[in-house]
Design a protein around this nucleic acid. Structure first.
Length: 490
DNA sequence: TTGCTAGTTGGAAGA
DNA sequence: CTCTTCCAACTAGCA
């Protein structure tokens, strides 16, 4: 009988957690451990909303462990240093953690694996964050990384159905006696301000219970779930949103992607007729797999330079435009409302992300996708390294997508879904009384109408930062040129 | 080699 | 209100 440690990083759940089962098997004592890594505790890297979500998730994990007479042990510091001491202090013979394929995690885990093995500790590292093991996909493609969703889908189909989720443990070995409390820190202890939730409770709480509950609530509408077609969902719907909005729970592994997948297949079996990838619910999980795989296998994936899948485009360095975009003062209500929703709630509908990303890059402002990526990385609850980089490259027509002449209009796009402007009024109260006719382009309203609405453009709300038609024409030309150079990062 | 086809989610105008 | 066409036109993947 040996003492074991489960090191939680993502995978903050009891259900479908092979690493937890591996750690619990035949263990005299089990130390369920989370390490607060200073690399992440940085308001510039991880915004307050996501940090709060993480702490909530840890709180629930601790509660679930305590129900099985265990607990969560929270350590603080550089993971390698902290672990080296803990493995020795607690005489750990087996260290288990779920595999993480992001570059920071790969480097960290490789160093820790060799440190542990040098100390005679067995290391078990199952894949459970994704449906498939990216190495298996790449091997099946004879070392070639799938360059498109279709190519990925064919490889995944060859591998067959993803592994079924494993059951949650019904009991756990006891933790050892500890020399200190090792409790979950508060936001304030981590140096974060803890503002009153400004969004009226629109931010979903973290934790696996909430993730599972939201999954089941969404899937309880069998017809909608079976008929789910992503491009047809409404980006201006906010109460409730038109998609599952489960990204944050998936990102932290509060909700297992394999459980999600299995539950969706159950709905399909019940309903019979259902949509197919890429637009279906299953298709959304496969997009995640595809982007995880490319992100894992591509060097410098979150940058333009040195990134072999990314087209090299001479973006402008324009701090003023970037600031106006990220601070929701572009003067385009649809863009500014979406950026406000992002800042306040840490979430945007996928198509809103498209609209603001297109606007920042190839559509209007000609600012590098890397700048937008950094803002999303900080503010999104569901920030996910490979998905974020992938989608920014997609929207800026730097990779995967190349119909660069398809530009989202900051005026007419949202109008199709929400002609009255409910969404804009919700997130930009200054515009609440602007007549629907002008809600997406208030600068066109006659001045008396602006006065009447209590929203004078240039005074209460900014003038549009660019003329969209002019910017679009100019940028199309620049894209044409960049495509003609046909330069890639390799 | 070459040619063909399909690709998650644009917009504007006109029938 | 829905459908088609034009805009100007890329490339991975396959036969």
């Amino acid at each position: 009988m040996t003492c074991t440690m489960l090191w939680f990083r993502k995978g903050l759940r009891m259900h479908d957690n092979p690493a937890l089962l591996a750690a619990a098997r035949d263990a005299a004592r089990l130390y369920p451990t989370f390490i607060v890594d200073p690399w992440f505790v940085n308001p510039e890297r991880v915004g307050v909303n996501r940090m709060r979500f993480l702490l909530e998730s840890l709180g629930e994990l601790d509660g679930n462990l305590r129900r099985l007479s265990s607990r969560l042990i929270v350590l603080r510091g550089n993971p390698q240093e902290v672990l080296e001491r803990a493995l020795s202090d607690w005489q750990i013979g087996r260290l288990c953690f779920e595999r993480d394929t992001e570059p920071y995690a790969c480097a960290r885990d490789e160093a820790i694996r060799s440190m542990a093995e040098r100390a005679g500790v067995q290391v078990i590292c199952p894949t459970a964050h994704t449906l498939y093991d990216p190495d298996e996909i790449i091997e099946l493609g004879r070392g070639k990384v799938p360059a498109s969703y279709g190519a990925f889908g064919r490889l995944a189909a060859k591998l067959g159905e993803p592994a079924a989720p494993v059951a949650a443990p019904s009991h756990l070995p006891p933790p050892g006696a500890l020399d200190a409390e090792y409790g979950i820190p508060t936001l304030a202890q981590l140096g974060y301000p803890d503002p009153e939730c400004p969004s009226g409770g629109m931010i979903p709480p973290g934790g696996e219970g909430e993730g599972l509950r939201r999954l089941h609530v969404y899937l309880s509408d069998r017809q909608r779930s079976a008929g789910f077609a992503k491009p047809d969902t409404d980006p201006t719907a906010f109460a409730p949103p038109s998609t599952t909005a489960l990204g944050a729970h998936l990102k932290f592994g509060c909700l297992s992607a394999r459980t999600f997948y299995a539950e969706v297949q159950k709905v399909y079996r019940e309903v019979g007729k259902h949509t197919e990838p890429p637009v279906s619910l299953t298709g959304q999980l496969l997009w995640r797999e595809f982007f995880y795989t490319v992100g894992y296998a591509t060097p410098n994936y979150d940058r333009m330079e040195g990134n072999p899948v990314c087209r090299q485009i001479p973006w402008d360095d324009n701090p003023e435009y970037l600031a106006a975009w990220s601070e929701a003062r572009t003067g385009f209500p649809w863009i500014d409302a979406a950026m406000t929703q992002l800042r306040v709630e840490g979430w945007l509908h996928h198509l809103s992300r498209h609209a603001v990303a297109c606007f920042l890059t190839r559509g209007d402002l000609w600012v590098s996708w890397e700048k937008g990526q950094a803002v999303f990385d900080r503010l999104l609850l569901d920030q996910d390294w490979s998905l974020n980089a992938s989608n920014w490259m997609w929207l800026s027509a730097s990779a995967f997508f190349n119909a660069y002449y398809r530009v989202y209009s900051p005026i007419s796009f949202a109008k199709k879904y929400d002609p009255e402007g409910h969404y804009v009024r919700r997130y930009l109260p200054k515009l609440a009384r602007v007549p629907a006719e002008f809600i997406y382009e208030p600068w066109r309203a006659p001045v008396p109408v602006q006065r009447q609405a209590g929203c004078v453009v240039g005074c209460d709300y900014p003038q549009p930062i660019v003329d969209h038609e002019q910017a679009k024409a100019r940028n199309l030309e620049r894209m044409r040129l960049a495509y003609a150079q046909n330069a890639r990062g390799d």
